[in-house]
């Protein structure tokens, strides 16, 4: 398969290693990987802040970048959810782009969803002995319906002991610009999430959205209780190293 990566603005700027590892894993599975130029962001940051005209132009740019792609895969459930959930709304009055966004929706996947549901490859032979817990991100689970896939991938990681996370369904308080617009509420939310992470007894926090992980890890570090944090992609990448 010819897979195009959608790197997302956050990983592109802060966590290029996540994108690179995703590319390596897909190549390892025998797929050709490209990263179309011009892609930058799904537009969610502006959309969620109420700036839909700005969001629409950023979305349009993204649509253009992937127009010739067969499959689009991203390391973020939130960004893919933005495309699936809101692009039709953004372009409701533009039939041409409405059609283009529907095409993009049909071919775009979050990484774990793509591996488990499309490629049917829940077992990558990874090995990573550690006690870990997993934070299910809200947009991936609720908006995109990516619920089981991450767990299936983790089940197959040898040596990984997955510990339950209390009140896992609670949002971590990131919410994009919410975290800076309502910083105190956001802090109260991440404080509760961080407490649950610490109480889980895990040495590693896993997730499938770097936004949430950046938030939780950033808080844990601020209170001097840093917990190792990884995207599932990073865990698989490390675990697959010989």
């Amino acid at each position: 398969m010819k897979v195009s990566l959608f790197a997302t603005c956050l990983t592109n700027a802060f966590y290029p290693g996540v994108d690179l590892t995703m590319a390596k894993i897909l190549k390892y599975l025998g797929h050709s990987v490209d990263v179309p130029e011009g892609q930058a962001c799904c537009g969610q940051i502006a959309f969620n802040s109420g700036y839909i005209d700005d969001a629409r132009e950023v979305a349009r740019t993204l649509i253009h970048s992937f127009e010739r792609s067969e499959i689009v895969v991203s390391p973020s459930g939130s960004c893919i959810a933005m495309i699936h959930h809101y692009y039709p709304f953004l372009f409701e009055k533009e039939p041409v782009y409405l059609k283009k966004s529907e095409e993009l929706i049909k071919k775009s996947y979050e990484f774990t969803q793509f591996l488990v549901d499309v490629l049917k490859k829940p077992d990558l032979g990874a090995k990573y002995p550690i006690k870990a817990t997993y934070h299910p991100s809200c947009h991936a689970t609720r908006l995109l319906g990516v619920d089981e896939a991450p767990y299936k991938l983790l089940e197959h990681v040898q040596g990984l002991e997955l510990l339950p996370l209390a009140e896992a369904q609670l949002c971590c308080g990131f919410g994009g610009t919410f975290s800076v617009k309502m910083p105190k509420i956001s802090e109260a939310m991440v404080a509760e999430k961080a407490n649950h992470v610490l109480a889980s007894g895990a040495d590693l926090l896993l997730g499938i959205d770097m936004g949430c992980l950046m938030n939780i890890a950033g808080y844990l570090e601020k209170i001097n209780k840093p917990v190792k944090t990884m995207h599932i992609i990073q865990l698989l990448g490390e675990g697959m190293k010989p």
Partner: peptide, 22 residues
């Protein structure tokens, strides 16, 4: 940005963005 950093740290902007790395 300070609204974030009051209660959280932020990772550094990578010296090379992924698009540049690629």
């Amino acid at each position: 940005l300070s609204n974030w950093t009051k209660s959280r740290t932020l990772p550094m902007v990578a010296p090379k963005s992924f698009m540049q790395v690629w």
